[in-house]
């Protein structure tokens, strides 16, 4: 049974859709990294993105966070179409991300890392920095307070003055999440957040992601830990060779023959291509 993904979705009111990709393509020379991928992510959802290595998951992340420009299709976020936008524009629009290979500001403290995340939602410029006027001082205080709050929120127990690179691995991953949350995103895009974590850390991460969703931030999740994805996600899409081969609830996707074929090999029957 391979229900075409698009038909499988009930029609949703546009306001409920946070992120919509319409036939998004991305090529690198002759290599097709994304081939007309379409998907919809609803507000308040935890949406999983899975697929074998090289399926185009991270490429898709890079497209929606502005690191890559898309070669075809449209991408609509929060009711607005974005094309060829710089990453900081998309961050301002409300998409924040973490990276598959941790990209913290290694020689800055944990606190400073999160404080950088507040850059977007604060405004002190050169003049404020030089005069240290009342407004700027108040803003700095609010940045520090918010950063401390977020460090506690994601559960970082190391001293806040620890350099990011000296944090335990699991805390580095969580610090990236705190930094992303500091930008006050509508959508948090997590690229393999559980990679390299042990079972305890993964369980804590799962709770954290659920809390984040409860607090009103939608989550787009790339993850190889299948159990985590199945437990956590409301819906998921499966990519293979840059194509979306399935989309739906975890229970539906896990029995989809195309998905099984993609993961285990074998004859590709009935591509659920949208």
């Amino acid at each position: 049974m391979t229900p075409p993904a698009e038909l499988g979705q009930p029609p949703v009111a546009p306001a409920e859709i946070l992120l919509e990709l319409q036939g998004v393509s991305k090529h690198f020379g002759g290599l097709v990294a994304l081939a007309e991928v379409s998907l919809q992510l609803k507000r308040g959802e935890i949406f999983g993105l899975i697929g074998p290595n090289g399926a185009g998951k991270t490429t898709l992340f890079n497209v929606i966070t502005g690191l890559y420009h898309l070669d075809g299709g449209r991408f609509i976020f929060n009711g607005k179409t974005y094309a060829h936008c710089k990453p900081h524009v998309l961050a301002a629009a409300g998409i924040a991300r973490t990276f598959q290979n941790i990209r913290l500001f290694a020689n800055m403290t944990a606190l400073e890392n999160v404080m950088v995340g507040r850059h977007l939602r604060t405004g002190a410029g050169i003049w404020g920095a030089l005069t240290r006027n009342r407004v700027t001082r108040a803003e700095e205080r609010s940045i520090v307070a918010k950063a401390r709050e977020l460090l506690a929120y994601v559960g970082i127990s190391s001293p806040h003055q620890t350099l990011a690179k000296h944090l335990p691995y699991g805390e580095q991953r969580r610090l990236e999440i705190a930094r992303a949350l500091a930008t006050e995103p509508l959508l948090l895009a997590l690229d393999e957040p559980a990679a390299g974590m042990n079972a305890t850390e993964t369980a804590a991460l799962k709770n954290l992601i659920q809390t984040i969703r409860t607090d009103g931030v939608s989550v787009l999740l790339i993850e190889h830990d299948v159990k985590l994805v199945m437990d956590l996600c409301d819906r998921l899409a499966v990519l293979d060779y840059g194509r979306k081969i399935a989309e739906g609830a975890p229970a539906t996707v896990r029995v989809d023959p195309a998905v099984i074929a993609a993961y285990l090999g074998g004859p590709v029957s009935g591509e659920g291509e949208a």
Binding site: A91, F105, M108, G128
Partner: peptide
């Protein structure tokens, strides 16, 4: 200052800085 932190972030990792909403240009 906020600007100083942004400079430092760019020095540390420009891609991450940009993704965190810093107008690197």
């Amino acid at each position: 200052s906020r600007i100083g932190r942004a400079w430092m972030a760019i020095r540390e990792d420009e891609v991450a800085a940009e993704a965190m909403g810093i107008n690197t240009r």
